[in-house]
Design a protein around this nucleic acid. Structure first.
Length: 321
DNA sequence: ACCTGTCAAGTCTGG
DNA sequence: CCAGACTTGACAGGT
């Protein structure tokens, strides 16, 4: 069984390489010459894309094959202040260059639109804006020339006092989601509302893959066991040509279980790796830790000393029975 | 150079 | 019914 590790957005090992620089609304509004403000935003976006490329080069050089882009690549993209501006006209070359590097090096990439993106809201306006946000993320992948194996992951949404109705509303709203989004969409269990079991059932209903977050499951298990959920979750990936992806993070402390620690404690991950090994299931594991790539390297170093782990490169292992 | 309050977005809690 | 927490890196305005 093969395990590959990935990291999110930033690389702590690189200096001055933020992929998420931005401009606030108040700064934008203070610039009288709107055209100048929009050009400045475009310069920041270009820098974010070139820093993403630096991070990807660093990942490849380190043997890392899995990466999640920052969702803040294009400042204020989607805000009404910038509605007149065609970001892609000016950023096409940068996006293409990033995409070419991803394809050439076969890096598995994704986006995680943030928790304001809700497909199950009772407000049709919020649902409509969320779909627009998902489309904007898809447009980025398309401009990079990346096929539907480049995925989006979001949560099932809010509970709104009635989880069952809220799940039904997700299913009803799914008909509003265009194909270009559907074919890239995946869902992740969250740490307070929708459990892994509820999320995998929802994924089965709408026919999309599920990303298991091991830490969220620990916060929000509702009496379910990962051992029983692993197979159904893995099955949701069957048609995609991709191996299942899971998220791992370690709690900051016992009292603050939900926050992310700087590093990954291997003990938080090993039980699930053992389940996957029993099922002979290859896995991609996304590290969600404050120390980003350095948490990945630390975990790799730790696992390399343990029985059964045969290191392939800086970011992957063969895990033997 | 460094520090502190603020930031596009929505939901949930507690008062 | 409304203010504040939630999470986070980075801005913005102060020193």
């Amino acid at each position: 069984m093969i395990i590959r590790f990935g990291f999110v957005a930033m690389a702590m090992s690189l200096k001055n390489a933020s992929p998420s620089q931005t401009m606030t609304v108040s700064t934008f509004e203070k610039i009288i010459d709107r055209e100048a403000a929009l050009r400045k935003i475009t310069r920041i976006a270009s820098s974010n894309l070139m820093n993403s490329l630096r991070i990807l080069r660093h990942a490849v050089a380190s043997g890392v094959h899995v990466y999640r882009f920052s969702s803040k690549l294009l400042p204020l993209y989607g805000h009404e202040l910038t509605a007149v501006w065609d970001y892609f006209r000016y950023l096409a070359k940068d996006l293409e260059e990033v995409g070419k590097f991803v394809k050439k090096n076969k890096i598995r990439v994704s986006f995680h639109p943030d928790h304001y993106t809700l497909l199950n809201s009772p407000s049709q306006n919020i649902v409509a804006r969320s779909i627009e946000d998902l489309i904007r993320h898809v447009q980025l992948f398309e401009a990079m020339g990346l096929d539907p194996q480049a995925k989006l992951v979001i949560h099932a949404g809010g509970g709104y006092q009635d989880k069952q109705r809220s799940l039904q509303r997700f299913i009803a709203n799914w008909s509003l989601v265009p194909d270009q989004v559907r074919e890239r969409m995946t869902l992740e269990n969250d740490d307070r509302t929708f459990t892994a079991k509820e999320t995998v059932q929802l994924c089965e209903t709408v026919g999309i893959p599920m990303v298991l977050d091991i830490h969220h499951h620990k916060c929000n298990p509702a009496g379910t066991e990962l051992r029983d959920l692993a197979e159904p979750i893995f099955n949701t990936w069957q048609e995609t040509g991709l191996q299942p992806k899971v998220h791992i993070s370690s709690p900051k402390s016992e009292t603050d279980c939900r926050s992310h620690h700087e590093l990954i404690n291997a003990d938080d991950l090993l039980p699930f790796l053992d389940i996957s090994r029993e099922l002979n299931q290859d896995l991609d594991v996304m590290i969600e830790a404050k120390n980003k790539d350095e948490a990945l390297f630390q975990l790799v170093k730790d696992l390399a000393k343990r029985p059964g782990f045969v290191q392939i490169d800086g970011g992957s292992f063969r895990y033997r029975p």
